[in-house]
Design a protein around this nucleic acid. Structure first.
Length: 152
DNA sequence: GCCAACGTTGGC
DNA sequence: GCCAACGTTGGC
């Protein structure tokens, strides 16, 4: 079992939105970065746990936990000309972009803010905190994951 | 709104 | 394959 962090702009899709979906589940469409795609396509497995991170908003930080419930499948929003995620280079045969589905598991009682996370020496290896990291999906070590759970 | 840092594109 | 130019991310 592996652990991950996934970023979302809460104004666009929040952890509450996830909780309110049918089956509290959503396919993570719209990722258009190869490294992030490769994590979803090649490494994320059913049962993996995910830190749900709020980015580009008033309170940036970790909002809760989700779980991978469906492994890699094509992100067909890339084929939809009306979608802001449209990619002219994606086709039915070569979908180019892939996603996993995650299910809501827990909303933290408080947002564990980015500023707070930065304070802990224990989290110095957390990729989120490393300089210039803009990945929207990244692996998290089991130790870091458990440390963060205990901060709530 | 600023801007550092990174990713992608495309000419050569 | 290099690299400049451009676009995007995302914290502040």
């Amino acid at each position: 079992m592996q652990y991950w962090l996934m970023k979302s702009e809460p104004d666009i899709f929040s952890i509450n939105d996830l909780k309110n979906r049918p089956q509290q589940t959503e396919s993570w469409d719209g990722v258009r970065n190869y490294q992030a795609r490769n994590f979803m396509r090649d490494q994320m497995r059913k049962g993996d746990l995910v830190l749900f991170y709020n980015s580009s908003c008033k309170e940036v930080g970790i909002a809760g936990i989700a779980q991978v419930v469906k492994e890699s499948h094509p992100d067909l929003s890339a084929l939809d000309k009306e979608s802001s995620y449209y990619d002219a280079k994606a086709t039915q045969d070569e979908p180019r972009w892939y996603m996993v589905a995650i299910k809501w598991k827990k909303t933290f009682k408080r947002i564990i803010s980015l500023a707070e996370l930065k304070k802990y020496q224990e989290l110095k290896d957390l990729k989120l905190l490393q300089k210039g990291n803009r990945l929207s999906i990244m692996p998290v070590s089991q130790n870091d994951f458990e440390f963060i759970l205990n901060l709530e």
